[in-house]
Design a binder for these strands. Structure first.
Length: 315
DNA sequence: CAATAGCCCTGGTGGC
DNA sequence: TGCCACCAGGGCTATT
């Protein structure tokens, strides 16, 4: 599921591709995927240019010249894939190339899909649209942006640019973990007097914005804190470790182009790379990279949770 | 107010 | 082979 690093990877890709593009048309294949009055779609999306692509927490913000912005939450299986228009060579015989080429800021893949960062030749998405495609944006130069979402939990909505910051989805959102406002004392104050499990608190977007199941598990392992521990039980030293761990796992993942598994792809339909280096996530039964103990999978707050029982002790 | 359970949804998996 | 219960999970809502 896209968390902060995945959304940031997609954002930076789209930020190189979309600004300057003008939207020619919008095709909504599943109504609930895009909430905006029909009249607004024709008047405030169609014909508008894209001016900027931003991010807040796990939500992407696409600013339009019409004075409106599109907010996008990918939830678990959402994807935003850009397909360049113009030339469409369609080479059916082209096989997969080297899976780990060097970072490539902007290049052509030869099939019309443009690549901005990440790993250009790694498992591309198939032909689009497909059965998971919910919304298609067509640009004046023939390029397209596909909003795909297998499980349809994701959403896009159109809001006035001036009201974006006050939108309901941002009102209760906590600090950006990679921003200057995320300080140890902030985390301390949010965990104080809280009896809920530390992992549950990390997943609560009102404390820190952008952490999901993957990076909560990863950060807790790096900080050597058991996810079931009560928030209030963490020592100052543990909170300091956790604070540093959150910043490190998110930063490392962005560096690697986001996590690679199931349905995550970046703006160009390309998978990420972080999971190869995951500490505990989806590694149950395998040895801990730090101490060799077998990674365990438990439940914390209804969520599947991966721990090293040796590195992360309850007491 | 804090904590928790249920719900939305589809595709993959494992048991029979 | 088919059928089906079950699981995955972000975040909103209702309940305690």
């Amino acid at each position: 599921m896209p968390e902060l690093p995945e959304v940031e990877t997609i954002r930076s890709g789209l930020a190189e591709l979309l600004p300057g593009q003008r939207i020619a048309g919008v095709e909504v294949l599943l109504n609930k995927s895009l909430s905006a009055p029909e009249s607004h779609i024709t008047t405030h999306i169609a014909g508008a240019g894209v001016t900027d692509v931003r991010r807040r927490g796990k939500i992407m913000i696409v600013d339009l010249s019409s004075g409106y912005s599109l907010l996008v939450h990918l939830k678990m299986t959402g994807q935003l894939v850009f397909e360049a228009g113009g030339q469409q060579p369609a080479k059916p015989g082209t096989g997969t190339n080297e899976p780990h080429s060097c970072p490539n800021p902007t290049s052509e893949t030869g099939d019309g899909r443009r690549v901005a960062g990440g790993h250009p030749t790694q498992s591309m998405a198939g032909d689009l649209p497909d059965k998971t495609t919910r919304v298609i944006f067509t640009f004046q130069d023939g390029s397209k942006l596909f909003f795909n979402d297998q499980r349809t939990f994701g959403w896009m909505k159109l809001v006035e640019r001036s009201k974006v910051e006050r939108d309901k989805c941002f009102m209760a959102m906590g600090v950006e973990p990679l921003g200057s406002q995320f300080e140890v004392c902030h985390l301390k104050s949010r965990l104080k007097h809280r009896k809920a499990a530390i992992k549950t608190l990390l997943l609560d977007q009102s404390h820190v914005a952008g952490l999901g199941n993957i990076y909560a598990d990863e950060a807790l392992h790096l900080a050597q804190v058991h996810p079931s521990r009560e928030g209030q039980s963490l020592s100052d030293e543990e909170i300091e470790r956790l604070h540093a761990a959150i910043i490190k796992v998110l930063g490392d993942s962005i560096q690697a182009g986001g996590t690679s598994f199931t349905s995550y792809v970046n703006a160009n339909g390309i998978t990420g790379d972080y999971l190869h280096n995951a500490r505990v996530y989806r590694r149950q039964g395998e040895p801990c990279r730090a101490c060799g103990t077998t990674i365990d999978k438990i439940k914390v707050g209804q969520r599947g949770t991966h721990i090293c029982p040796n590195c992360q002790k309850l007491t």
